[in-house]
Design a protein around this nucleic acid. Structure first.
Lengths: 410, 410
DNA sequence: GCCTTTATTTCGGGCCTCGAAAAAAAGAAT
DNA sequence: ATTCTTTTTTTCGAGGCCCGAAATAAAGGC
């Protein structure tokens, strides 16, 4: 049911817009905010002075060397770093990263550790995470804003409320209540998010003009992750099992996938699939848990230098990804594609077959128009995205305290 | 750029909500509207008396036999049929339907004709449409509200502004400026919409509680159409080439599709594909333009009664649809699927293989939870959807007069 | 007929945004 | 050095909108 717009929603929304305008990171003046939002200068003035008084915004440090024009100079506004602190936790295979970020998103403290995620017991895994957060908080001391939120990011599938990890390749355990454990320990709201979705969040934050309405993020690692942004909305799906690009079907009854089914895109384009193929193993051979980076790079180099099973393996991968993207482009308009992860290092090897596959699908007519952006290192993006996700939630809490989200009118 | 919420936007949106609440068709009282929208009784009271005064709403005819409770009885509100008239045009293979609907959506006049769409010249085709509308308007006389909008619905691809038909199987011509022609002749806004999308609009209008957030509409005819509703939004795509479920790839280098590519779902599940397969023709045989209903029904009957090429053909079709849906369920959450068109008559024949295919994909885990709704006759749905689409646009125009253009300064 | 119940309208209060005017803060001109 | 000009920001009064409370309206129950 569509809910009515109350009189006080108005202020809330406009506060939201002001915060969002400042979070864009351009240190806008009140005048610029007024122009950007279409609201009057007087409105912006009152809202921003409220926000400054509440310690959410602050006058920007006068770093401007600036070409001074005539007239009263604009006063640049910025987020107050002290307004809040968030924790971004990234749990990946045998690696754990905990970052404290201030309200502007800048990192205060970063803690890295290497728990043996595949062998730890469930409790030990949860313990490793909470301990690492504890340690990071200790290390940060108290010279920062109040801790208000955490986002834990992981490869795999979460429950619909973003509170539990349902399945992940990094641990044999399932249904792990990370959010509950962290909330109990630290007393702030926590959500569990898919890593690739957070990459999408980070990309949009970095380049909102390019990644605004529609774009696809593909994370190439042992599995294939996807972040799907359509009409400006991140599609995580109501059950958070969505965005499983890697498990779209490429060939019925095809190669054996890590998920136990056959013919998934991942069973051709995941690291284990490329490895399996390059070594001449059967398509039905059991996937291995992880291939180290050096091996992948060596295979890519081999594929690049001479024909052989390595090259064929990457071509197969490109074909699977290409057909998958083609199907996506049939459903949605062609949109920018960002390829993230070590797999980008072999992009030159598989791009031709990928483009060839796209050309054989409905995406073909737009093949030239489809841009592929490469981001070799996913970790910074995941960290940024997780922090940004937590910050967005805080922004929401600040300007819309205790109000259910609205639904759009069709 | 996110735009600020102005003070008068508030009233506009709340007017919109009142109109929408009444359009749901339940003849709500002011009290019910207040409860549904969460707005106060006083607000609803002023808004609805405004709308009544403007001739948009009216007191419902006292058709209520009603269980009278104690207290002042509620006054049921309804749309004023005289508030507007819209034209819903459905152009399909060798058939043209023009319907005048009043503001409540009720049909006033319906004109059916049978132009030879495949052989008519482009001008003659446009002429046939405008003439048919003219005729319908003549027939309706003047005892109806002002004509405010038209929607032309067609199978095929439109341009991004919904003004031109770019490609359709019903005519050899391309890039036909239907909207321009109709607007020039009748002086009201016209859009050109895909038939399957309009079916989705109609389904939501009919059963908003079931078809609200996510559902997929599949139209089985000579081609395969899809309407994609995600998070309550109809995904037509910015270039309106979206929602092409039928051209997702099923088998690389597979059967020849009408679109010239190979392996599309349509090349296995479209009528021509089933026909081709049932007759033992090659997968690469040229698709035929149309199969008449009797032939399709006969093939379905044959498939039902005994094993043979017909049964195999439908099984192939079910497999292609199943894998396609499976890929969709990998990307999005499982959602209700509505199958529309004559193809539903063979649903019992292809359902087992379809479900089996879904089970082999990421959709498998939800197989039991996925409901398939059947709607054999698509024409009423397309007509309803087209009318509804036009009415929604009018509602927009009414509550948002003189669209608040954003003031973007360069 | 009067009481009770429920629906709708009226009225005053409190916010919110807006436009206009005032104040502030600079460079430019004299 | 002082007085324009220009531009930004704040202040202030007006008007619009929603809300809650009270008043009014329209039934059925007694």
């Amino acid at each position: 049911m569509t809910i009515g717009v109350r009189h006080d929603d108005l202020r809330r929304r406009n506060r939201a817009m002001v915060i969002a305008a400042v979070r864009r990171g351009t240190q806008p003046s009140r005048t610029e905010i007024a122009n950007a939002t279409g609201l009057s200068h007087s409105t912006i003035s009152t809202i921003s002075s409220d926000l400054i008084e509440e310690g959410i915004l602050a006058l920007a440090k006068a770093t401007e060397p600036g070409v001074l024009k005539r007239g009263r100079p604009q006063v640049a506004l910025d987020l107050n770093p002290q307004a809040a602190t968030v924790v971004a936790i990234v749990l990946s295979l045998n690696a754990l990263s905990v970052t404290l970020n201030d309200y502007t998103g800048a990192a205060i403290v970063q803690e890295l550790s290497r728990p043996a995620t595949l062998t730890l017991s469930q409790d030990a895994l949860v313990g490793a995470v909470t301990d690492a957060v504890e340690q990071a908080l200790d290390q940060a001391g108290s010279a920062h804003g109040p801790l208000l939120r955490m986002t834990l990011t992981i490869q795999g599938i979460t429950d619909s409320e973003a509170r539990r990890l349902m399945w992940s390749p990094i641990t044999p355990h399932s249904d792990i209540a990370f959010a509950d454990a962290l909330e109990a320990r630290f007393g702030v709201p926590v959500t569990v998010q898919n890593d690739c979705n957070m990459i999408s969040v980070a990309l949009r934050a970095r380049a909102p003009e390019r990644y605004r309405d529609n774009f696809f993020t593909i994370l190439l690692s042992n599995g294939i992750g996807m972040g799907l942004v359509l009409r400006g909305n991140l599609f995580t799906g109501a059950h958070s099992s969505a965005g499983e690009f890697g498990h779209m079907n490429h060939l019925p009854d095809g190669a054996l996938c890590r998920c136990g089914r056959r013919g998934c895109i991942e069973a051709y384009a995941g690291n284990y699939a490329i490895y399996r193929h390059a070594r001449g193993e059967s398509e039905l051979a059991q996937p291995v848990a992880d291939i180290d980076d050096a091996t992948m790079l060596a295979m890519a180099a081999a594929a690049r230098s001479h024909p052989g099973p390595e090259r064929e393996a990457f071509h197969k991968a490109g074909e699977a990804i290409g057909y998958g993207l083609g199907s996506l482009f049939a459903l949605f308009d062609p949109a920018p594609v960002v390829i993230v992860g070590l797999g980008t290092s072999a992009f030159d090897v598989f791009e031709p077959t990928m483009r060839d596959a796209i050309a054989r699908t409905a995406g073909g007519q737009h093949n030239a128009a489809i841009s592929f952006e490469l981001e070799p290192d996913e970790m910074p993006l995941i960290r940024e995205g997780a922090a940004r996700h937590a910050l967005n939630a805080i922004d929401q809490d600040i300007f819309a305290p205790g109000v259910p989200t609205r639904k759009d009118v069709a």
